[in-house]
Simulated assay, not measured.
Amino acid sequence: MQRVIKRSTKPDERNVNDPFTNLPPELNVEILMKLPPKSIARLRFASKHLSTIILDKEFTKLYLTRSSAQPRHLISVHRGGSNMQMHRFHSLSQDHPLPSNYEIVSYKLDPNLPYVFTPPVRGLICGRDGTKMMVGNPSTGQFVSLPRIKTRRQEILSVFGYDPVNDLYKVLCMTVVAKRSNMSRVGNVVSWEDIVSEEHQVITLGAKEKWRMVECKYPHRHYLGYQGIYKDGFVYYLASYNKKRSLMSFDLSSEDFNVTKLPEDKMLQQFGELVNHAGKLTIASQAYSSTIDLWVLEDANKEVWSKAAVVVPPVTDIFGTFHSVGLMGILGTGEMVFAPHTSRVLFFFVCYDPKSKNVREIVMNGVVDGSDTIQVFSDHVESCMVL
């Protein structure tokens, strides 16, 4: 028996008495450009006319261009220890970081999945817990799950980035395995030089997203506990190559790997974290003193680096009492962002200007409690992109 499908003759409720249909298109765009991403996301369901504009890639690019001129701090807070796993993102202005100027987006996570997020890219952010991964827009609260990573191993490094040539977002994942063919052992201990990142996988965000293996001509080992960063169509991360610490890069368009030698510096071979320093790729290296060495990559093709030493005040001078703190990034103004690794009821971080020696303290009341996991990101831009 053939099934007859009746189509509703009722008009779309969003078309009934929609005031935006009577306004010129350029005025609708101007109205949307003045709204925060959360409000734009709601209007997409309230007005079919505005939804057409909001879903247009050109409007997304226009909104992102405006937001790029107003970078923000992004605070990621995961609250566990109960049946109600909650994750919140706090976005606040870099120029006016007052409690009244930050937005909060909350959403419920799967139980017992403390996602660790990579630095945001063009308004989007990527989180991973084991082989589970999600990508989302922290400004709108929209998050989507990606397929599980194809591996049984847990030593994974994931880096999130954007391919400007093809206008695509991609995630690169690597897992560590031991090369049994030429392992050198002392007892049952495998030499570090014999451990490499063997599985290299990429996923492209889209309707038919799936993980696929990519080839790497440079046998290397990524460092666990370190983050990669995105810049100008490439993702970068620190790794061991030919028994030396090196800078690895991955072209998100051609999907080719490359390696850049680090300067012959003993401390740099042992310490250092990648940061974005006023648009330049920088390794911030700090050993046991109050001096932080900033190694700036001036020319990747010629492997030219410059070095600047910055003396920072003792932790007790900045935070009042002893805390375990870390350098979270360097703003376009040159200010260095420091934040404690552990949560507290009164959460705050500081921006230190090495030129003027000024310290700005950003306090966020009621943001965390003693069980929360916190990540601080700088130079976040708000996006209204719909996933």
Rank of each mutant, 00 (worst) to 15 (best):
S67V: 09
C173P: 03
D95E: 12
G161H: 03
L294A: 03
R79K: 14
R152K: 09
F143L: 12
T151N: 01
F234M: 07
C384V: 15
I31G: 03
G81P: 05
D129K: 09
V259T: 06
P314Q: 07
V171H: 04
N22E: 06
Y115R: 04
S240R: 03
S67H: 07
P119F: 05
R14V: 02
R44Y: 08
V296H: 09
S82N: 06
F348C: 04
V312Q: 11
A284R: 02
K48W: 04
T321W: 10
R44M: 08
W295F: 15
G366A: 15
G366M: 10
N276W: 03
V159K: 10
M248I: 15
T282H: 04
Q94D: 11
G206C: 08
M385K: 10
G136T: 06
F377Q: 01
S158K: 02
L172I: 04
G279L: 06
T342E: 14
E335V: 09
D18Y: 06
S106M: 08
Y169W: 02
V312C: 14
N276E: 05
P37V: 06
N182W: 12
H90D: 00
Y241C: 11
I374W: 02
V367T: 09
I283D: 01
F347W: 15
K108E: 08
G225R: 00
D293E: 05
L32G: 04
S383M: 09
K280R: 13
D251H: 05
H90C: 13
N17K: 10
V214R: 01
K48L: 09
Q227E: 09
W305P: 03
R180Q: 13
I125N: 03
S378P: 03
Y226T: 14
S139L: 04
T342M: 13
L238S: 00
N182K: 13
G225I: 02
I149D: 01
T316W: 04
F338M: 14
D299E: 11
I75C: 04
S184A: 12
T175P: 02
L274E: 02
Q270S: 13
P25W: 11
L23W: 01
A46G: 09
P147K: 04
R7Q: 10
E26V: 13
H277S: 08
A309V: 06
L331T: 15
L98I: 09
R42F: 05
E30T: 07
A69I: 02
L168G: 00
I125H: 01
L43M: 09
S249H: 06
V363W: 07
E199C: 10
T291C: 13
R88W: 06
L74K: 08
P24E: 12
N358R: 10
T175R: 00
I195S: 01
E13S: 11
R3G: 12
K266H: 11
V165I: 15
G272V: 07
H380F: 09
I40E: 13
G136N: 08
S253L: 02
R42M: 10
F117A: 01
F234R: 03
E103D: 10
K61D: 13
S47A: 00
H277R: 00
L146R: 14
V337M: 01
G80D: 08
E199A: 14
L32Q: 07
F347P: 00
M183A: 08
R88T: 10
L247G: 09
I283Y: 04
K244I: 07
F347I: 01
Q2C: 10
P314H: 06
S253G: 05
V312I: 15
K34D: 14
N83Q: 08
